[in-house]
Amino acid sequence: MLIYSSFSLLAYFISQRYYAHYLILSLPALVIIMGVSLSDIAKSDFARVFISIWVILFSCAIATTKTGTILRGIKGYIALSTGQAPDTPTQISKEILKKINPNETIYVYAYHPILYYLTGVNLPTQYFFSEHHLSSVHAESLGFKSVDEMDHILSQSPRYIIAGSDPEKVEFGSASQLLNDVLKKNYKLKNTYEWPERSGQILLYERN
């Protein structure tokens, strides 16, 4: 367990991509190690009570920081039980599926790529995480320019474009500018959705 947890943590730090979900691989081993350690330490009733109190306080502190996520999860389960869309990606995909044809595609810009799965379309790019083809750092490391990949995507005339960030902000340089130009020329804003995690909006564009 020590070897496994050590290597998984080492891989996490070496990657220099410090996302919390990458630590999930280490959790099982760390929990077992902690449990064994606590069972040895907590020989007396006082020690057990002391440790239990701190575990409860720590759990409450974590829950407080994740209150929004927990509430959205509860709201989603309630919506699902009543036959409604449990989350924003599902809402968007349902609207897209009303009109899209099997041979058409969509493009997800700076938003959750699960929309490709929910709509069942063919991907317009092999880099379905938009950061991988929009970020110049990622694109150059993969051997292409982000604006060229954007041009390739737009050449397929996606029926819908879903933007988690307003292209007018030109967040990703020339790639964003190209997208913004095409949206103004060939697309109309069909709908907007709230994005609670980012306190922003998701923009749904439909081709003219």
Rank of each mutant, 00 (worst) to 15 (best):
F144R: 01
S157Q: 11
K145R: 15
A139E: 04
F50N: 04
R159A: 15
F50H: 02
Y77N: 10
K94T: 04
F144D: 07
Y160V: 09
L204Y: 03
I96W: 07
P196F: 10
G83P: 03
S26I: 03
Y107C: 05
F13V: 14
P86T: 07
E168M: 11
E149P: 00
N191M: 12
V121Q: 01
E131L: 13
F144W: 05
I70L: 15
I162P: 01
Q156H: 09
V137L: 04
N101E: 15
L134S: 08
S176F: 09
G120C: 08
G120V: 14
I53G: 01
G164A: 09
Q126V: 11
D45A: 05
H152W: 00
Q201V: 05
A42R: 07
L178W: 04
T125C: 01
E197Y: 11
Y77S: 10
A63S: 13
K184Y: 03
V55A: 00
L189R: 10
K184A: 11
A175E: 06
I3L: 03
E194H: 05
D181T: 15
T105C: 00
H138C: 12
P102S: 07
N191P: 04
I14L: 03
D148W: 14
S146H: 13
H152R: 15
I24K: 03
V147M: 06
T192Y: 03
P167E: 10
I96A: 05
E149V: 05
A47K: 14
N191W: 09
Y109H: 07
H138R: 06
N191D: 12
V182H: 06
Y18Q: 06
K98F: 10
K94P: 00
S39E: 11
V121N: 03
L178S: 05
Y4K: 11
Q16F: 12
F172E: 04
V137I: 12
A85Q: 10
V108S: 11
R72C: 12
D181R: 10
M34E: 09
G83W: 00
